[in-house]
Design a protein around this nucleic acid. Sequence first.
DNA 1: AACAATTTAGTTGTGTGCAATTTAATTTGA
DNA 2: TCAAATTAAATTGCACACAACTAAATTGTT
Lengths: 159, 159
Amino acid sequence: MIITTISMYRKDKIDMDDVLLLENQICFKIYTAEREITRLYRGLLEEIGVTYPQYLALLVLWEKERITVKELGKKLFLDSGTLTPMLKRMESNGLLSRERSKEDERSVIISLTEKGASLKEKASCIPTRLLDSIDLEGGELEQFNQTLTTILSKLKDRE
Amino acid sequence: MIITTISMYRKDKIDMDDVLLLENQICFKIYTAEREITRLYRGLLEEIGVTYPQYLALLVLWEKERITVKELGKKLFLDSGTLTPMLKRMESNGLLSRERSKEDERSVIISLTEKGASLKEKASCIPTRLLDSIDLEGGELEQFNQTLTTILSKLKDRE
DNA sequence: AACAATTTAGTTGTGTGCAATTTAATTTGA
DNA sequence: TCAAATTAAATTGCACACAACTAAATTGTT
């Protein structure tokens, strides 16, 4: 028998009720973990005045000061339907500027303002504080990270 | 030195740029995985006409036909601000009914309609199909599930 | 060159999430 | 007992996500 669900692996039997039990839904745990992490970030990011998705955009921009909406979307796996309004909010908060590319008028180039760039310093403590909260022994964290990467690449393959 | 980040664990050094590198953000992977999983569910759930959060509510209701909004929220970690509009949408789609409790007029009891209950049969293949997509060897899946549970309980502790 | 196909942002509409507040019902405690 | 505190839903307002579509610019093809 091919093992495909947690409950099958644990109990070696198939049962419709069992398969559908919420507790067995690993996806529900990922869904919940995502919201818990966002909630935790909310507190940490409050002092620099950005949301978690905005913080992710800043992470990209701290690595590369100028980037098109398209490239940003590729890194964050978000489309213009999400990014355009979010970037407008960040612009009106003085974190970045949006300008049409001279070379290709279809593209919009996002670049950090002084203010946006300056937040990097304040944010540098955040990843450590976050992982302190998760508080896993290094090896287990590394194993978890690897499996998560594997899962992501398999999910991405199905596109 | 206490190991707190993936990059520290791997390279034994601390570097602000490194810590902030998007690739090192395990939280970003969880955030991305959640959206990928939801995307995958979208296709599977299309034929029964529900969204992923609605499907989660159905999972609970398939276990317990009548439940208050409060109890449902406790299981899904969602508040009335999210649940009330969603349950209204599900009600207008004929999946469930909402009625004030006679014993305690503050509570609203959700109960499945015939239609809502009947979807259970069609949905029974979904968890397996989902895990087929993730496609991990049983042991690794189980290990991942355990770590995820640990992370969740630690995150929940901080409330 | 000219026109079709493609690409990039933006727009629109729907569905969550969640903080903050409101309303109504119930419980508590002086 | 009865006002204060608590509880359960609902409401309001904001910020994502994302599908579907539009508009404008660029590229490809003949």
